[in-house]
Write a protein that binds this DNA or RNA. Structure first.
Lengths: 251, 251
DNA sequence: TTAACAGGTCAACGGTGTTGTCATAAGGTG
DNA sequence: CACCTTATGACAACACCGTTGACCTGTTAA
């Protein structure tokens, strides 16, 4: 039974649930998000979602082909929310840095949803809008198409990947998280210099640094490399010899 | 029943399974790894693992408290294997690039383990060894401690985060994965230029680029930024030789 | 007013991780 | 060697899970 789902636009008969709820794609997505936030990622199941909505679990299959489709819808809603709060200034570097931090913050604000959706390509409206926007920023800055796509891909995946990573940490049960924090203090900071000289020498920095997300640092490194690349490209264009003079990582 | 598990060291009675197999932590971990490799990430369940071992599923709970514990043991083994296959040459940049690619490949080979272990600090032997090694490479290259720790953190987290991200994608059920691949071809490549000019202009590159992991590109960007930073630092040192020069860099 | 059918419901299938209980063979002890 | 303890494997059951085929019923368009 694969044509159970009816496109949202064609829905006419808004028949209420036994418990009086009128279902809709938006209501389901919202409820799923709420459920995830309140009771954790593993609290999201078709059955629980049905219960939370006041509907039979199987009703949801009139709106989404499978759980996966539902997750994609949730993911897209998250992208949309982030994109709507972003105000580009025209400075590509600052704009991308800001957008990246917003995406990361958005993921952390909805950790469990972020974990589930970070690795999916939704092909839905907000995602497409984000792709178009970021590509526009890069091309507008002067990156040629190949470079723009390459950097777009790395930039976006980095934001998503760190978002998911830090979200996963955030979503850890309390005792587990405390235990992890303790490891750096209790184990790494105590290692003797003769067996682990480098850890011992930097223990102070490690303990201080490891408790924060490394995303801002990682993003700055990535973007500054992109900026350097852009400078090279511009220089090459101006001189217009056969090759740019600046050496690249080469490989 | 939480004290079902007996530490490996205390095991004395090697009682064979009904089917004649003698269980052990190593055998279980190995079999789990093999199962994942042969039949995909979703083929690993306690029941299937039991079947593959020739033992009742519940027997495994004498060795691991829950599935997560098992996956962490698998992950630790993975770190060890990756480190063991890595041959540093002394060129810090090439060595870190190589190690990163190995970590990423290792994660992809065992997606479930990678997803679970990416955001955890285990404090186990191989993890400590990895920290010490990478810090050593960075400090040996000439990064001062603060920078070394900052870059270490970004570098490692990026490897872990991309490993988990790409693993999650790999671990997707096959139909879902095919669907994702199709999205780029069928949706992004078809968007009209008047509504989505940037996507339309780069569609060819997008389709080609998006099917691969962006990790190599992202890592190259991060490492090249680090290299630029190191050049800066060295230049600063040369100009301001307050410290003993030590061995000359000579790249 | 009514008939078609969208959309909600029910029950069932085959899967999952996990645990309480029982059975038995291994291994130390005398 | 025989005995006893007990570690460890097996079994059965529990509570979930996603999904689907069949059924039932209220809404809506004609």
């Amino acid at each position: 039974m694969s044509d159970r789902v009816v496109p949202a636009a064609d829905r006419r008969r808004r028949r209420p649930t036994k418990q009086g709820v009128v279902l809709s794609e938006e209501l389901i997505v919202e409820t799923a998000l709420r459920l995830i936030e309140e009771h954790g990622a593993e609290a999201l199941s078709v059955r629980r979602l049905g219960r939370a909505l006041g509907a039979d679990p199987s009703s949801l299959y009139r709106y989404f082909r499978h759980t996966d489709d539902l997750m994609l819808a949730v993911a897209d809603e998250l992208i949309g929310r982030t994109l709507r709060t972003w105000r580009p200034t025209g400075d590509w570097l600052a704009d991308l840095r800001d957008l990246g931090l917003r995406m990361h913050a958005g993921a952390l604000a909805h950790p469990r949803a972020a974990m589930l959706s970070s690795y999916r390509v939704t092909g839905r409206v907000y995602e497409i809008q984000a792709v178009e926007t970021i590509l526009g920023v890069l091309r507008g800055a002067g990156f040629p198409d190949t470079e723009a796509v390459r950097i777009y891909h790395a930039y976006v995946d980095q934001a998503l990947a760190f978002g998911a990573l830090d979200s996963a940490n955030t979503a850890l049960p309390k005792p587990a998280r405390d235990a992890e924090a303790a490891v750096w203090q209790a184990m790494y900071a105590q290692l003797p210099a003769d067996t682990h000289p480098h850890i011992a020498a930097t223990a102070r920095h490690l303990v201080a640094t490891m408790r924060h997300s490394s995303y801002p640092a990682a993003q700055d490194l990535l973007l500054s490399a992109a900026a350097a690349r852009l400078a090279e490209i511009r220089a090459g264009e101006r001189a217009l010899p056969t090759r740019s003079a600046g050496r690249s990582p080469s490989s």
